[in-house]
Design a protein around this nucleic acid. Structure first.
Length: 352
DNA sequence: TTTTATT
């Protein structure tokens, strides 16, 4: 299915170049593997135990989306012994796990030049095979993977596919050379462009999803509601309280002592975020809350000695409506394995 | 007319 390239040994040593590998440094190219097409629901623990069954693992990582915590369907395994890495490829590559056939290969050295090298191709002749598509593109560089999407029922090509090159430059050249061109004997020209980057898309998709799902659950069809009314309903959800008068929001009555922060951090609405993972960092909070509006400050509360997150943090937002929308949307949101609790920070300290 | 390949 996929091309079997991937990783491969490093190129020949340069004449007169420095001799590498004589100082006892680890040669990652022989121990570090990339694993692709993992089932979506596989956990880090399952991933580790599967590959740990081959031999001693130096480190391994199931790659997850920064924001949602969802598995991205691939991971890395670094073995202590190169022989185990080789054994893992021989025994686990092609293994069927649920609906997926996993791919295990040597990881290429990580570098900026291999990122964003994935192309989206459309307008392909329905008769074109994956191999033919690869032949068309291989003149521009080394192909890491290719895929043609097919109709799930009939199995016939949808005329749409992906090509991942080893280097971004190669992908750029392929766009220049093939976008708008007709393959030999084809009636229509093909479109070649960079594929959507899933990691960038997530924020937007998350937002859209949250808005739509909250609005539907709590306010009914959007076209029957005004902005004001929708926000009111979202607030009902955020507080778990029935609110009878929308005017209460505008006046912000009933909210005394809640959320509004003064002090050195500047004015704004302070939001309490609970059930963050020990690995959570500030960037996660920026990414989660940023899409809802102006965020002036985020803070992850960490243990002094371990520097791990103690499970909660704070976010300050400038505008009340945006803060309320963020709370309504993100409270109860599942972040990885955890369900977030999000609310305005309450001031328990005040003694009247 | 968008699958989940770079920590």
């Amino acid at each position: 299915m996929e091309s079997q390239v991937g990783g491969g040994p490093a190129g020949p040593a340069l004449p007169n170049g420095p001799l590498l590998g004589t100082n006892g440094a680890t040669d990652d190219s022989k121990t570090n593997l990339i694993v692709n097409y993992l089932p979506q629901n596989m956990t880090q623990d399952e991933f580790k135990s599967l590959f740990g069954s081959i031999g001693d693992i130096e480190s391994c990582k199931l790659v997850r989306d920064k924001i949602t915590g969802q598995s991205l369907g691939y991971g890395f395994v670094n073995y202590s012994d190169p022989n185990d890495a080789d054994k893992a490829i021989n025994t686990l590559n092609g293994l069927k796990l649920q609906t997926k056939t996993i791919k295990v290969s040597y990881a290429r050295p990580s570098s900026a030049s291999i990122r964003d090298a994935n192309l989206y191709v459309s307008g392909l002749p329905k008769t074109m095979s994956q191999k033919e598509m690869e032949q068309l593109f291989s003149q521009y560089g080394r192909i890491i993977t290719s895929r043609i999407l097919v109709d799930q029922v009939t199995g016939v090509s949808r005329g749409v596919g992906f090509i991942r090159f080893d280097k971004r430059i190669e992908a750029e050249e392929a766009i220049k050379g093939l976008n708008g061109q007709k393959p030999l004997g084809a009636a229509e020209p093909i479109t070649v462009k960079f594929a959507n980057n899933p990691s960038q898309k997530t924020g937007q998709a998350l937002l859209t999803h949250l808005y739509q799902s909250s609005a539907r659950r709590y306010a009914g069809p959007l076209h029957h509601q005004t902005q004001r009314f929708r926000l009111d309903n979202l607030l009902n959800m955020a507080y778990g309280v029935k609110r009878f008068s929308p005017i209460a929001i505008d006046g912000m009555s009933g909210l005394a002592g809640v959320g509004l922060s003064g002090g050195a951090a500047g004015a704004g609405w302070c939001i309490f975020v609970y059930n963050l993972s020990p690995e959570a960092d500030e960037s996660v909070l920026w990414q989660l809350f940023g899409p809802f509006g102006a965020v002036t400050n985020v803070k992850v509360i960490r243990d002094f000695t371990t520097n791990k997150c103690k499970g909660f943090g704070f976010v300050t937002m400038t505008n009340y409506d945006e803060a309320a929308m963020a709370i309504a949307s993100l409270n109860g949101y599942r972040l990885g394995e955890r369900v977030l609790q999000v609310s305005f920070k309450t001031s328990k300290q005040h003694k009247a």
